[in-house]
């Protein structure tokens, strides 16, 4: 058992070094601001068959929201990648923007919150008229 924990401790230290090396290497995916077409494509991959003409882009280009009737389709950044979720439009529209950010509690264990950079009015008018 001592040998196991010795190996565990050495492995833990090695993990720290590998994470530091990965950070130093800067070889994550480049994440330029998304264009509306790119955002629409990413949302469509997870919600296929839906009409996504109206898409609101986050101020920093690292997120987007499409509205589908009473639902909002969210695209938000996770590290150098993206995740999507679907929430009720009513829930989203009632969230307040603070300090240029909209933080939405998703109440999901695997995705507790989504965050979007906003500069204009919230909820965005482009989506309000999309129902």
């Amino acid at each position: 058992m001592t040998a196991f924990w010795t190996q565990f401790a050495i492995s833990f230290a090695a993990i720290g070094l590998m994470i530091a090396l990965a950070a130093w290497a800067k070889i994550a995916r480049p994440q330029p601001a998304l264009t509306p077409d790119q955002a629409r494509k990413l949302i469509s991959l997870d919600f296929s068959g839906l009409d996504l003409d109206l898409v609101w882009m986050a101020d920093d280009g690292h997120g987007a929201i499409a509205r589908r009737g009473d639902q909002a389709l969210l695209l938000f950044a996770v590290g150098d990648s993206y995740a999507t979720r679907c929430v009720a439009w009513r829930t989203l529209s009632q969230v307040e923007a603070k300090a240029g950010q909209v933080r939405l509690n998703l109440n999901e264990f695997d995705a507790p919150k989504a965050q979007f950079a906003v500069s204009g009015a919230w909820p965005p008018s482009v989506l309000q008229g999309a129902a």
Binding site: A22, I27, A28, G79, D80, S81
Partner: peptide, 9 residues
């Protein structure tokens, strides 16, 4: 190869 530090962790 693509490594994102938090994902790697």
């Amino acid at each position: 190869a693509v490594y994102e530090p938090k994902d790697t962790a």
